[in-house]
């Protein structure tokens, strides 16, 4: 190896670093396309449903009167709507405190084979200073929709 000149060694090191970083970048770009979880409103979900089992997030309003507890005491079923479409959701777990009928929610999870959304996690408004960012926009959308509906 001592035959390699200093200049060459430096070049080789730089090339290795460059190739590794480019490979990391390419890998990341590929993985991000397939693994990022997209955000859907109920209308998007109805119009263009993702394949079952793919991790997505669903945002909308919890429909009034739709929340029902299963007999096991820990599974909740409810409907998320945005005025255009309705998606049935089931969630097994402890719901966040500010999860209420008629207020916004973002559910992380996936569609099952029957078109029901199975949530692993529910994000509701935490407090004044912490709102999931989709929900801020969503409530604005909702406000606009509400204005349209009453006119």
């Amino acid at each position: 190896m001592s035959a390699i000149k200093a200049k060459h060694q430096r070049l080789i090191l730089a090339l290795i670093a460059l190739v590794a970083i480019l490979a990391a970048g390419a890998l990341a770009a590929w993985a991000l396309r397939s693994q990022a979880s997209y955000f859907y409103l109920p209308a998007d979900l109805a119009a263009n449903p993702p394949e079952a089992g793919r991790a997505i997030r669903l945002g909308g309003m919890v429909e009034a009167g739709s929340v029902a507890k299963a007999p096991d005491g820990v599974t909740v079923r409810f409907v998320v709507g945005d005025g255009k479409a309705r998606v049935p959701v089931s969630f097994k777990g402890i719901v966040p405190d500010l999860f209420k009928e008629g207020s916004g929610v973002v559910a992380e999870g996936r569609l099952d084979s029957e078109g029901r959304f199975v949530a692993d996690n529910l994000l509701a408004k935490h407090d004044e200073k912490y709102v999931p960012r989709e929900m801020k926009d969503m409530t604005a959308d909702q406000a606009r929709a509400a204005v349209r509906n009453t006119q």
Binding site: Q35, A36, S37, F39, E108
Partner: peptide, 10 residues
Amino acid sequence: GERVSVGPPY
């Protein structure tokens, strides 16, 4: 204009 989140699966 596309909203995504990236988590443990990535």
